[in-house]
Design a protein around this nucleic acid. Structure first.
Length: 926
DNA sequence: GAGCACTGC
C-alpha cells in the first residue's frame, strides 16, 4: 500500500511536469479492480470448447448473427423515427466510406497534376517578379503575404503592423532577458497609428542595423555562396527551381538570397477561434490580467474562469435534466470546474462523481489541480484511477479516470451504483473506449433515473450527441482563446516537405517573436525536414538568428522529448517538428506559428483481409482546426496551411472517421462479452461498426479459446514476458537516422535465432540481468520507456495468472517449446515462403506478404513463419515474426490445418533440428 | 533493399 502511494507520488510529480520522466524507478503494485476484472474475462475465455462443436457453433452463431442483422435492418426500415434515422446515418456513412475509397486515388492523381502545373506557371511568373524586387527585410511581410486584392489602405495597415510588431518583439527580448516565459506584446503592436513617428524611427534604426552588418562583413564569402548553392542543389526538394540568388544589393542578409525564388505565397483568409472577450482586450490589458491572475488566490482564479459565470445556470439545468450535453470551448475550465460545482451542490452525498479522460496524463494532472483547488490531498476527496495505479480512497468523491478504466469498472459494478454523476469528457475525440461507454451509460441511465450524465465536448458533434441521448439538452459555454490568423497558400504545393522548410525559414526571418510548430506525419518526415533545415541554416551562416530544431514523436526517447519544453533563449527561435502527438497529448508553451501540411498517418483495419494499414491520409477539417488552435494558446497566433482554401473546403472531410469504425474489434467483443453483452448487433453504438468488422471480430474471438488450452503452465512465465514485450509493439528498439550503423550493431548483438519473439525475450532477460538499468538501454538503443511499460504489463499479467491460480514454474529456456507455444497462439497467422523465394503467402487467406524490415528475420532464409500482425504501409508486411516447423501447425491446431496444408515445404514431415528436445518438452504443450 | 501515427486496459 505504501509502495503504491510512493509510486503515485512520483507520478503526480511527473504529471506536474506535464510529461513523464523516465529516470524514475518504478514500484509495482497490483490493482484490485482490474485484477478481479481480468479473472472474470479469463473465465469466459477459457470455457472448454471441443473441436467439432466449435466449428458447428461457429456456423450456427454466424448464421444467427447474420439473421439478426437482417432482422434489425428490416425492423429499422419498418419503424419510424430514431431507428430509421440511425439506419440512414449508417448507410450514408458506409456509402461515404466506399465513395471516399474509390475516389481517393483518382483525386490524388488529379490533385498532383494540378499542383505541378500550377507550380510551374507560378515559378515562371516569379522569375519576372524577382527582377523588380530589391530590399528584403523592410518588405518582409509584404513578400510573405503578397496579395493583389488588397486596397491601398489595407496594405498600409499591414506595413504598419509589421513594422510595429518588430518593435514590439525587440521589446520582448529585453523583457525576456530578465524573466523567462512568454511576454505578451504591448499595445503598440495593435494601435500603430498612435505612434507612427516612433515606428518610423525604429524602422530606420532597424534598417541601419542590417546595413551596418554589411559594412562589417563586406559581403558573403565565396565559400558561403557556394554552401548556399550546394544546399540548394543537394538538399532542397525544390533544387533547380531557381538560379543562385541575384536580386538585391550584394552583401545584405537577404531573404531572397536564402529562399531563392522559392518563397511561398500565402493568403490571409480568416481568423479562427478567439473568444469575443479576448479579442476586445489590448495586449497590455491581457498582460495585466495575466499578472493579476498569478497573484490571485486559488478561489479568485476559479472565479475568473469562464465556467464560473455559468455555475448557477448549469446547476439548475442539471437538476431538471438527467442527461446534459455540455459544449465547452478550450479554456472554459469545464474539466476542473464542473465536478466541483456538482460536489458543492451536494451531488456527492448520494455517490461519487466520475469523470473520464482519454489520456492518463490528463487524468492525473487534472485530479491534482482539482485537489489543490479544493485544498485536499490528492487521493483523498479527489483522486484518479488509471491502469497500474489507483489513487483513490474510501473518501474519494471526485474521481478522474481514463475511459478504459471505467470500462473495466463496469465488470465489477455493472450499474455504476457508487456514482451519482458520470461525466464523459473530451467526447468529441471519439476514442474507441468513449464510444463504447456511450452505449453503456445510455443503457444504465434508463433504469437508474437517479444517475446524472454529462457529456462534455468541444464544439463539434454536439447535436449528434444530443440526438443519441434522446435529445438531451445542449448547454454551451464560451472559452478563452486568442485569435489565430489562418493563411492558405495561393496555389497548391507540389512538395509539402520542402514547403515546410521554406515556410519555416520565411517565418524565422520575417516574423516577430514566437516559436513554430510544424505538423508532419512520422519519424521519417521529421528527420528529413530536420536535416534540410539544418543544412539551410548552416548555409545561411552566423548572421541569421539561431533556429533551435526540436523533433518530437512518441517513439523518441524521453530525454530528447523533454528538449521541446526548454524555454527558448532570447534572440533565437524554436521550431518543433511534431507528429500528431502535439495535437492533443502534449502542449508546448510559446507556440505562435503553426505550419500545417494537412496530412497525418491514419490506421484503418480491413476486416476482409485482417490487415491494418497505416497510410498518409489528408486530415479532416476538425483535425486541422484543432492544429490551428495550437497557435492561439499564449497570444494571438498564425497558422500557415500548405494547401489552398479551396482544398480545405472541398477536399477535406468534415470529421475523422471514428476509431470504432476503423479498428479490429476483437478486444471490444471480448470486453462486451465479459460484461454479459452478447448481442452486439443491437448494441447501441453512436456510429455502429460495419457488420463485416463485427463478424470478423466474433470469428477471431471464437478462435482464441483453443490456443489458451494449449498454453501449458510451465511455459507461462516466459510467454507472459513475450506477451508483455509484444504489447509495447515495435517501439523497443530505437533507430535514429544519424546513428544508423551503431543502432543496427547494437540490435544485431541482441538478436537471437528464429525470430522476433525469441529476440524480444532475450532483450528482456538481458535487461533484467542489468537490474533494469537505464544506462544499458541507452547503450543498446533500447527504449527505456518501452521496457518499463513492458515491466508494468508483465507484472499485471503475472498477478492475473496468480488470481486464477496458475502456478508459475520458471524453467530453462527451451526455444522449441516456446516457439511451439507461440505457434499454438498464432496458428491462424502462419505464412509460407513462395516458390519464387521473394515473398510469403499467408496460409488459408492466401495473401502475399513480406517480412517487415524491422524483423530479425528480414534477411534470413526461412520457410515457415507465424506473425503477430499484418500491416500495410509501403508494402504488405508481417510484423513480429517467428520461424516455425510447419508440422507444429497440424500438431497444435488439427482442427485448422491438415497435412495437405503443409506439404510441398522443405521441412514438413522431417524431424527438424531438435526432435529429441521436442519430445522431452512435449508435456509442456497440451 | 527498406521502416513503426496516437491512445488505452
Amino acid at each position: 500500500m505504501s509502495s503504491s502511494r510512493q509510486q503515485a507520488k512520483r507520478r503526480h510529480r511527473d504529471a506536474e511536469q506535464g510529461w513523464r520522466s523516465d529516470d524514475d524507478e518504478y514500484d509495482y503494485s497490483g490493482n484490485q479492480q482490474s485484477a478481479g476484472a481480468g479473472s472474470h474475462a479469463t473465465e469466459s475465455e477459457s470455457e472448454p470448447v471441443s473441436k467439432l462443436s466449435t466449428q458447428d457453433q461457429d456456423l450456427i452463431d454466424r448464421l444467427a448473427f447474420e439473421e439478426r442483422l437482417r432482422a434489425r435492418d428490416s425492423a429499422a426500415t419498418r419503424s419510424t423515427g430514431e431507428s430509421e434515422r440511425d439506419r440512414r446515418d449508417r448507410e450514408a456513412a458506409q456509402e461515404r466510406d466506399l465513395i471516399a475509397r474509390l475516389e481517393a486515388d483518382e483525386r490524388r492523381q488529379v490533385l498532383e497534376r494540378s499542383r505541378q502545373i500550377s507550380r510551374s506557371s507560378y515559378l515562371e511568373k516569379r522569375v519576372s517578379d524577382k527582377l523588380a524586387e530589391a530590399e528584403a527585410l523592410a518588405r518582409a511581410e509584404r513578400l510573405l503575404f503578397r496579395d493583389q486584392d488588397l486596397t491601398e489602405r489595407e496594405l498600409r495597415q499591414r506595413e504598419l503592423r509589421e513594422r510595429t510588431f518588430r518593435t514590439a518583439s525587440e521589446h520582448h527580448e529585453r523583457v525576456d532577458a530578465v524573466e523567462t516565459g512568454y511576454v505578451l506584446p504591448d499595445e503598440t503592436t495593435y494601435e500603430p497609428e498612435k505612434d507612427l513617428k516612433r515606428a518610423r524611427k525604429k524602422e530606420a534604426e532597424q534598417f541601419r542595423r542590417y546595413t551596418s552588418t554589411e559594412k562589417g562583413d563586406t559581403g558573403r564569402s565565396a565559400w558561403e555562396d557556394e554552401q548556399i548553392g550546394k544546399g540548394q542543389l543537394r538538399f532542397g526538394a525544390g533544387a533547380g527551381r531557381a538560379g543562385p540568388g541575384s536580386s538585391g544589393p550584394a552583401g545584405l542578409l537577404m531573404l531572397d538570397d536564402l529562399l531563392q525564388g522559392e518563397d511561398i505565397e500565402f493568403v490571409l483568409d480568416q481568423v479562427a477561434g478567439g473568444t469575443p472577450a479576448a479579442e476586445k482586450l489590448t495586449p497590455a490589458e491581457i498582460a495585466a490580467q495575466e499578472e493579476r491572475h498569478r497573484a490571485r488566490t486559488i478561489r479568485e482564479q476559479r472565479e475568473s474562469l469562464p465556467a464560473f459565470e455559468y455555475r448557477e445556470e448549469f446547476l439548475r439545468v442539471m437538476e431538471q435534466n438527467q442527461v446534459v450535453v455540455l459544449v465547452g470551448e478550450t479554456g472554459s475550465g469545464k474539466t476542473t470546474q464542473i465536478p466541483q460545482f456538482l460536489h458543492e451542490a451536494g451531488y456527492t452525498r448520494r455517490g461519487r462523481i466520475g469523470c473520464t479522460q482519454p489520456r492518463r496524463v490528463a487524468a492525473m494532472s487534472v485530479a491534482k489541480r482539482v485537489s489543490e483547488e479544493m485544498g485536499t490531498r490528492l487521493g483523498q476527496e479527489v483522486g484518479y484511477s488509471i491502469r497500474f495505479e489507483d489513487c483513490t480512497s474510501d473518501r474519494t468523491v471526485i474521481k478522474y479516470m481514463t475511459d478504459g478504466m471505467l470500462l473495466r469498472e463496469f465488470m465489477t459494478e455493472p450499474d455504476l451504483k457508487s456514482y451519482s454523476v458520470m461525466i464523459i469528457d473530451e467526447a468529441h475525440e471519439r476514442t474507441l473506449h468513449t464510444d463504447i461507454l456511450f452505449g453503456l451509460v445510455k443503457d444504465i441511465a434508463r433504469y437508474r433515473p437517479d444517475l446524472k450524465l454529462v457529456i462534455m465536448s468541444a464544439t463539434m458533434d454536439a447535436d449528434k450527441f444530443s440526438r443519441f441521448f434522446d435529445d438531451a439538452l445542449i448547454f454551451k459555454m464560451h472559452g478563452r482563446r486568442f485569435p489565430v490568423d489562418i493563411y492558405y497558400t495561393k496555389s497548391p504545393e507540389a512538395d509539402y516537405l520542402d514547403a515546410c522548410v521554406v515556410t519555416t525559414l520565411q517565418i524565422h526571418l520575417t516574423q516577430g517573436r514566437g516559436d513554430i510548430l510544424v505538423f508532419l506525419t512520422g519519424q521519417e518526415e521529421i528527420e528529413t525536414v530536420q536535416e534540410n533545415l539544418q543544412k539551410r541554416m548552416k548555409a545561411l551562416g552566423p548572421k541569421a538568428p539561431e533556429l533551435i530544431i526540436c523533433p518530437i514523436y512518441a517513439n523518441l526517447p524521453s530525454d530528447m522529448q523533454n528538449k521541446i519544453f526548454e524555454p527558448t533563449p532570447a534572440g533565437s527561435r524554436k521550431v518543433v517538428l511534431a507528429t500528431n502527438i502535439a495535437e492533443t497529448s502534449i502542449t508546448i508553451d510559446g507556440i505562435v506559428f503553426v505550419i500545417d501540411p494537412g496530412f497525418s498517418k491514419l490506421n484503418s483495419y480491413n476486416p476482409r483481409t485482417g490487415m491494418s494499414s497505416l497510410l498518409v491520409t489528408p486530415c479532416s477539417r476538425a483535425m486541422v482546426n484543432q492544429r490551428a488552435g495550437r497557435a492561439g494558446r499564449v497570444g494571438p497566433g498564425k497558422c500557415f496551411r500548405l494547401y489552398t482554401r479551396w482544398s480545405y473546403e472541398h477536399e477535406l472531410e468534415e470529421n475523422t472517421v471514428p476509431e470504432i469504425q476503423r479498428t479490429n474489434l476483437g478486444n471490444v467483443v471480448l470486453l462486451l462479452k465479459s460484461l454479459g453483452i452478447d448481442d452486439l448487433v443491437n448494441f447501441d453504438f453512436l456510429d455502429p461498426p460495419t457488420p463485416e468488422t463485427l463478424i470478423r471480430a466474433l470469428e477471431q474471438v471464437r478462435a482464441s479459446p483453443v490456443p489458451s488450452r494449449h498454453l501449458h503452465f510451465p511455459l507461462a512465465q516466459l510467454i507472459v514476458t513475450i506477451c508483455a514485450m509484444l504489447s509495447v509493439n515495435s517501439s523497443v528498439f530505437y533507430a535514429p537516422k544519424d546513428r544508423k550503423s551503431e543502432s543496427e550493431n547494437a540490435r544485431l548483438a541482441l538478436t537471437r535465432p528464429h525470430g522476433d519473439h525469441m529476440t524480444l525475450l532475450n532483450v528482456w532477460n538481458s535487461w533484467v540481468e542489468t537490474n533494469y538499468s537505464v544506462q544499458w538501454c541507452f547503450e543498446n538503443f533500447i527504449q527505456y520507456r518501452s521496457m518499463n511499460h513492458a515491466r508494468d504489463v508483465r507484472d499485471q499479467l503475472l498477478k492475473l495468472l496468480e488470481r486464477v491460480e496458475i502456478k508459475l514454474v520458471s524453467n530453462e529456456e527451451d526455444d522449441i517449446a516456446i516457439r511451439k507455444a507461440i505457434t499454438a497462439g498464432f496458428f491462424y497467422h502462419a505464412a509460407q515462403k513462395n516458390i519464387s523465394g521473394k515473398d510469403f503467402r499467408t496460409s488459408k487467406s492466401n495473401q502475399t506478404v513480406l517480412i517487415h524490415p524491422s524483423s530479425t528475420l528480414h534477411k534470413t532464409p526461412v520457410e515457415w513463419v507465424v506473425y503477430h500482425e499484418l500491416m500495410l504501409t509501403s508494402r504488405e508486411f508481417m510484423r513480429q515474426v517467428t520461424e516455425i516447423d510447419p508440422t507444429w501447425l497440424v500438431e497444435v491446431a488439427p482442427h485448422y490445418y491438415s497435412g495437405s496444408d503443409i506439404t510441398g515445404s522443405e521441412t514438413s514431415g522431417k524431424g527438424f533440428h531438435g526432435e529429441k528436445r521436442h519430445k522431452s518438452s512435449g508435456s509442456a504443450l497440451r
